[in-house]
């Protein structure tokens, strides 16, 4: 625990104004986050000492602190342990197919630009099966916030190797140790044009909250990787102890380097993890760039997107009532 003493301030645990921290006050009977959760679905499916619940508290706190109108926020998830996040958060939420959370969210955003689209999904979902969508959303600077919870394996299906599994780590599909080179995910999205990139661990709740809040307020493609303990499959198979032991590992081995070159942010098996906010820059979003180009080419002929159909108004396009 010596390191704990040395690095405690890294975690912003002291000197925090409780009035600014996390969501509005609870009462003795009422947990303040229950308003943001589908309590009729609790307890969630995540294992004891899994970090996903902690990611949700950071998300909820960020939503509260961002003051973005709650009805504007939609949460999209793919498949997997993290894919269940959308189902627990009391927002308009979508649990989509494996890997397709980003294009689904793209459709939501482009069709209804008022929405604040947030994705919470796993490393396998976003970076493996959804890898193509990830790089293209980053390239387009599509206005959305992607929270990629990285637990280094496919946990829901029992701990198979993922493109994030560090070399040397064991998984059910790498019984003799993973030998493929894993993705350096912040570098991947940075190189593809993401305009906000950060990485924290599930222990860095305060920094993670601030990052999610910044990402949600950021215009453009914002990406946050959250290193999160998977006690039941990844930690067990690699004899790393419980999720709490992994949290302690993150505590002792994460090095905050804001605006570090993402190229240097590789994660090696049980070695130091570079965390921080790596990229934050302003560039035209997909919708900005589209509008600008159309205006340039079409001039007065350009009719900006009319927006989605309005349930409250008779669109005037309708003649008959479907409910016959």
């Amino acid at each position: 625990m010596q390191e704990f003493e040395l690095r405690a301030s890294d975690f912003g645990l002291v000197l925090m104004n409780p009035n600014q921290l996390i969501v509005g006050r609870g009462t003795a009977e009422h947990h303040p986050m229950e308003d943001f959760l589908r309590m009729d679905r609790m307890p969630h499916i995540w294992c004891s000492t899994c970090g996903l619940g902690t990611c949700l508290t950071a998300f909820i706190a960020a939503v509260e602190e961002s003051t973005i109108p709650r009805e504007d926020i939609v949460v999209v998830s793919g498949i997997g342990c993290t894919g269940r996040a959308a189902g627990y958060l009391k927002f308009d939420s979508f649990h989509t197919t494996h890997g397709r959370a980003i294009p689904y969210a793209t459709g939501l955003k482009v069709a209804n630009p008022r929405l604040k689209v947030c994705l919470i999904s796993g490393d396998g979902d976003l970076v493996s099966i959804g890898g193509n969508h990830l790089i293209h959303a980053a390239r387009r600077n599509m206005d959305m916030t992607v929270i990629c919870v990285n637990n280094f394996n496919y946990a829901m299906t029992g701990g198979q190797a993922a493109p994030s599994t560090p070399q040397g780590a064991f998984a059910t599909t790498t019984p003799y140790g993973a030998f493929e080179r894993p993705f350096n995910i912040p570098f991947l999205v940075d190189s593809c044009g993401a305009t906000y990139v950060a990485r924290w661990t599930a222990l860095h709740v305060r920094q993670l909250t601030i990052s999610i809040k910044e990402a949600m307020l950021h215009r453009g493609f914002s990406f946050i990787e959250v290193i999160s303990p998977c006690p039941t499959v990844y930690a067990r198979r690699n004899r790393l102890g419980s999720g709490l032991d992994l949290m302690k590992f993150y505590h002792d081995h994460s090095i905050t380097k804001n605006f570090a070159s993402t190229r240097e942010c590789d994660i090696k098996f049980q070695q130091d993890i570079i965390v921080g906010k790596f990229v934050q820059k302003d560039e035209p979003t997909y919708l900005d760039a589209m509008d600008a180009q159309m205006k340039k080419t079409l001039g007065a002929k350009f009719v900006p997107y009319v927006g989605p159909m309005d349930p409250g108004a008779d669109s005037g396009r309708t003649k008959s009532d479907a409910r016959t």
Binding site: V76, T96, R100, T106, G107, K109, L115, H136, P308, P311
Partner: peptide
């Protein structure tokens, strides 16, 4: 894969897609 996913998202966003 992305096209159809975007269409489904857009439909829930309120568009005829």
């Amino acid at each position: 894969l992305a096209s159809i996913a975007a269409v489904l998202g857009a439909a829930w966003g309120g568009a005829r897609a």
